[in-house]
Each structure stands twice: as C-alpha cells, then as structure tokens.
C-alpha cells in the first residue's frame, strides 16, 4: 500500500530542529516558546545535536540507541526469534507463574500431577485391559498404557493449556507489548513439570513390574524433543485460530480425544494394518510413544521408520505453527 521497504526519510523530516511538525504543517511560531525544546538531549554527543540530518550522523545515532520501526507489515521471522532470546527472563517468570498458579489453593497441590495420569491408567486397565482384553505386547497392561499416557498427557495438557493461555491473557495482549509467542510457549513448557512427575511414577512402576530398559534410552532425548516440538506446533496453530474463532476452544476437548485414538495410547501398533503404517506414523506421537515403549519396556525393536516419519512431521508442525502464529500475532490485540 505504500513504499515501506524503501522508506527512508519522512517527507517532513527536513524541518529544522526546534520545530514541531504536525500533519505537514510546521508551526514555527510556537517553537521558540517551548521551555524544554533546546535543553541538552541526554546521551547525544554535542556536535550532532543540532546538525542537519545526514547519513553519517544517522548511522552514528543508530549504533547507540535501538531503533523501533512501526509498520503495517509484521516483523520478520528471524527478528522475532531474536526477540525471544532477549525476553528469556520474561519466559522464565511466565513459566514460574504457570506452575505456581496451577496447583495453588488446592489441598494436595502437586499431588494432582500424580493423580492425573493415575486415574486414566486405572480406567484403561479395567476397560481395555480386563474387559476388552486388548493386546499389550506381552507386558502388563497397566504398565503398557501408563508408558503411553505419560507422553500423551504432556501433549494433550500442553495443547489445551497453550490454546487457552492466549485467550486467558487477552488482557495482557491489549495492554503491553512483548513477543506473543512467549504465552503459549510458557504454558507448554510449564507442563514439563507434570511430565517429570509422571516419568518418576513410570520408573517406579517399571521397578515394580521388573521391566528393564535397553540401549534404546539413548534415543529418548530425541523422542522428547519431538514430543515438545509437536506440542508447541499444535498449540501455536490452535491458539492462533482460537483467539479469532472461539469455536476452536469448544471443539478442543473433542479433537484431543480423537487424536488420542489415532495414537497407540490404549492399544499396540501391531493392531494397525501394515499398509496403513506410513499414514499412521504422520502423527508424531505414534513414533514418540512406540519409541519410549521400545526403549523402556522392550516391547519391540526400535521403530526407526515411525520415528523418522514422525520427526519430519513434528518439524513441519512446529515450524508451520510458529510461523503462522508470528504472522498472525499483530492482529491479536484487535480481535482478542
């Protein structure tokens, strides 16, 4: 709509110093009476203070003070990543707030992080393990389903929190500027505490049932990275949509349920026909859950193909999600 990229000097920039220029009208007569108009200008070196605008002078200035541009176009991807790095302190405090607030004023506090994975495991064990007698790759069903639930609950809670975080913080969005990505990011990261608690419980169950991990544990860091990237990506996609279309918020629990049955949380991947495996692996959580089970419980060989496909798709989800978020974030304050 205008030549933003080639923007150099505004048309009225040539007005002499000491005048207040408004809408193209230079009100020279008012200028000499301004009490502070000619006071020393802070950090500026003296010779440049009243010099005519020139390229040298401008370059010198810009090296001293950061320059903020305000334009209709949104900021580039790289600069918004750089901004994130600058706001690491804020991320830290937002995560801390999420964690502190989540279990504040509840009698058992962090105990909820223990109960939350425990209940679905009991239900699944009774319904799918005992009643439906689903196969569990030869290990106790309770352990089998818990190993799937630990990463799955991280994903589903992370996405739910991430999506709601943006709406819950709508007030902040319209009152102060900071990289908006920090909000879903802090929600997703803060769920890692619950994940750690659940992992400790899983280790306890492994000791109880006598399951022995194998060399596959070396792959676990990569599996966790996949899990976190997927969660961040989906949370970015859905929170961006949810801030404008609240329908997403209402459809979310339903969506998460459906997604759960497209991942091998309650059933083993051996139930999936071989011809569907490639399509099935597009859900990155398939690779994550099967990889974890293989490494910790030795249910099967390390599913390299599932993990490879899942890695690609988790990267695609994460990059496209953050990209979409960054591209849309400039409208948040207007629609929130």
């Amino acid at each position: 709509m205008n030549n933003l990229d080639s923007f150099d000097l505004p048309p009225n920039a040539t007005a002499p110093p000491g005048t207040f220029v408004v809408a193209g009208l230079t009100s020279r007569d008012a200028a000499p009476e301004l009490p502070l108009a000619n006071t020393p200008l802070g950090e500026l070196p003296a010779p440049e203070r009243h010099s005519r605008p020139g390229n040298n002078c401008q370059a010198a200035m810009e090296s001293e003070l950061p320059v903020t541009w305000i334009q209709p176009s949104s900021v580039g991807r790289m600069s918004s990543l750089l901004e994130l790095v600058k706001h690491v302190d804020l991320l830290q405090f937002l995560v801390r707030r999420e964690i502190k607030v989540r279990y504040a004023q509840s009698a058992i506090g962090i105990g909820w992080a223990v109960l939350q994975p425990l209940f679905p495991m009991l239900i699944f064990t009774v319904i799918f393990g005992r009643l439906a007698k689903l196969s569990s790759d030869g290990i106790p069903y309770a352990l089998f389903s818990f190993a799937g639930l630990v990463p799955w609950l991280y994903f589903s809670n992370g996405v739910t929190d991430g999506v709601n975080s943006l709406i819950a913080n709508a007030n902040m969005l319209s009152k102060v500027y900071f990289p908006r990505l920090l909000i879903p990011l802090s929600a997703v990261i803060s769920r890692f505490i619950d994940f750690c608690v659940a992992t400790i419980m899983l280790l306890g169950m492994m000791v109880w049932y006598g399951a022995i991990p194998n060399w596959g544990v070396c792959v676990i860091p990569w599996l966790l990275a996949m899990m976190i990237l997927t969660t961040i990506g989906i949370a970015c996609w859905l929170s961006t949509l949810a801030i404008q279309y609240r329908d997403v918020k209402h459809a979310l629990s339903f969506l998460i349920q459906v997604l759960m049955y497209t991942a091998p949380v309650v059933y083993p991947t051996t139930l999936i026909p071989e011809s569907w495996k490639l399509l099935y692996a597009l859900n990155p959580m398939v690779g994550v859950i099967e990889g974890l089970r293989s490494a910790l419980l030795g249910t099967r060989d390390m599913p390299w193909l599932l993990i490879a496909i899942g890695s690609v798709s988790s990267l695609v989800i994460a990059i496209s999600g953050t990209n979409y978020f960054v591209r849309k974030q400039r409208i948040f304050a207007d629609v929130a």
Binding site: L4, P66, T68, I70, P72, S73, S74, S174, A333
Partner: peptide, 21 residues
C-alpha cells in the same frame, strides 16, 4: 499510544522510535 507501543499494527503509515520503549 497502542500503535507506538506496538500493541497493534497500523493499517497504514509508519513510525520510527529511537531508543528503548
């Protein structure tokens, strides 16, 4: 004020701010 503090983006035009805002 919202435009200058980058809370919303302008529909048109631009502004340049020198220093930390």
């Amino acid at each position: 004020l919202k435009l200058l503090s980058r809370i919303t983006d302008p529909t048109a035009g631009s502004a340049r701010i020198l220093g930390r805002v």
